[in-house]
């Protein structure tokens, strides 16, 4: 493990441009027979093409249309998520928290960037930013306003700081304008930000 010491830390020995730094590190590991570039390609493909917020939207739209499912995932989401094939790294212990007229939920990871990858994909840049991590616990309403979300004064905010391997998914309220639609049509209303709590469901463009 790295320790605090007076020597120059190893990372300072790499080139200063990040593009070159990644290349230098990968080249060394490949040349030593420790990393297969095809495996790195496969991970890139996985992140870019096979995970994303549509998985979470399927969970939310199903919860809006299937009361038994909704009740089950609010109690313990994992059995259903496993059955739906929506689990994996960074989604081992998902907890679904429900927005109500009384309470709006928002998710953050102040200590790093914990996020439910199998449901929402790789976190957006703002989720990993210092400003979001530092501020959303102390002044969530100001931060949400920067996302264009102004909460009513009679709705409390509950901010979930993901400090453990639990990953939180916000179950937004179903908009009145989206009543009566089937789960497939509803899926298009569920934005990524609505499932983090920095937005609300929106009519598809």
């Amino acid at each position: 493990m790295p320790h605090d010491h007076g020597d120059a830390p190893p990372h300072t020995l790499l080139p200063s441009e990040p593009e070159l730094r990644v290349k230098a590190l990968e080249s060394l590991l490949v040349a030593k027979g420790l990393v297969d570039p095809a495996a790195v390609d496969a991970i890139v493909d996985q992140m870019q093409n096979h995970v994303g917020p549509r998985a979470g939207a399927r969970v939310v739209s199903r919860a809006w249309t299937d009361p038994a499912f909704r009740a089950r995932i609010l109690d313990d989401a994992m059995p259903d998520l496993i059955e739906m094939g929506l689990t994996g790294a960074q989604g081992e212990h998902v907890v679904v928290v429900e927005n109500t007229p009384d309470t709006h939920n928002v998710v953050v990871c102040t200590l790093c960037s914990c996020y439910p990858w199998p449901l929402l994909g790789v976190p957006p840049a703002w989720y990993k930013s210092d400003a979001y991590r530092a501020r959303v616990v102390r002044e969530p309403r100001k931060v949400l306003a920067e996302f264009g979300l102004d909460l009513p004064a009679d709705q409390a905010v509950r901010v979930w700081d993901s400090t453990a391997e639990t990953r939180y998914l916000v179950l937004p309220m179903q908009p009145d304008a989206a009543r009566g639609l089937d789960a497939d049509a509803l899926e298009a209303w569920v934005t990524r930000n609505a499932m983090v709590g920095t937005g609300l469901p929106e009519a598809p463009a």
Binding site: P18, E26, A125
Partner: peptide
């Protein structure tokens, strides 16, 4: 907070750094 939407990663090297 800069709420700008980027693709999953802002630059290709970021994707590579994550995967590596």
């Amino acid at each position: 907070v800069d709420a700008t939407e980027y693709p999953a990663f802002k630059a290709d090297w970021e994707t590579r750094a994550h995967a590596l």
